[in-house]
Amino acid sequence: MKKTAFYGALTVAGFAASMASAATLDDVKERGVLNCGVSTGLVGFASPNANGVWEGFDVGVCRAVAAAVLGDAEAVEFVPLTTKTRFTALSAGEVDMLSRNTTWTFSRDVDLKLEFTGINYYDGQGFMVPRDLGVSSAKELDGATVCIQTGTTTELNLADYFRSNNISYEPVPIETNAEAQQQYLAGACDVYTTDASALAATRASFEAPGDHIVLPEIVSKEPLGPLVRHGDSDWGDVVRWTLNALIAAEELGVTSANIEELAAAPTGNPEVNRLLGTEGELGAMLGLDANWAVMAISAGGNYAELFEKNIGENTPIGLARGLNAQWTDGGLLYSPPFR
């Protein structure tokens, strides 16, 4: 670990961390803390509460991975990253994984050498307008001023959508969600566009959410998911299968309420047994404890519990499951089998 005196001193002093991208899993275990990159503040997905504790759906994924690897859902260091710094932070090893509503695209996966480990939220870009504008379709937005968050796929989608529909618009690029909100509420732009989930979250934080409507058009596919560095497949597997475990747990009816009971002894369902480590050696294959999935699921519950607690219909954000329902319920969530 202490390769040179200089870095050794910096490491002890807490200014530097040694990392070897060859084996992130070992690094995380040795460090005892998972460094997880999250958004700088998007209510419902990742935002610090008044006590500075991070909460949200993306945060839940980080905690599940930390619980699976380290057995402690609190052993996470959340690193808030902007759209500009997120990929560099991951590539340079500042964070072990990124769970920051990031869209899976070809060029990010291939050109930027990142590895998406699954999809935790199927999203699409939508538009929000004030109700009194009297607009009911995005096609009526000719000449409108549109607020966009820069550095995301949304500004590319927006340009494509308006271009293909041959209508004009005036973009107002904005760094953070908070400022976009301020601009939109002050009427400096007619429309605010971003992922539909983030729109719902933003709208929920308004004083009078009823005065604003989200237009029916969804103009893009935005599969959001956690990602890791390219070239460390072992670590990628850990993150991928932790996410799958959360999804499979819902499908198999394993919740944070009944997991202790189910994990205590082998049950009648062999797949549940394999998932919970009472049968087979799936944990050891990942290089984790046998009860890795038990820890991950108990951290914040299975996929459905995370969803309902952070962004579901009973929260201020109020998102319906929609595409994010299990495949058995007509959604797209489909975990590969644990076998």
């Binding site: 700088t40 503040g41 998007l42 008044a50 808030p80 953070t176 908070a178 909100q181 934080s205």
Partner: peptide
């Protein structure tokens, strides 16, 4: 600009 203005309480 970040956490305080984006919080629901002090927006």
């Amino acid at each position: 600009r970040g956490p305080i203005l984006s919080s629901t309480d002090w927006n």
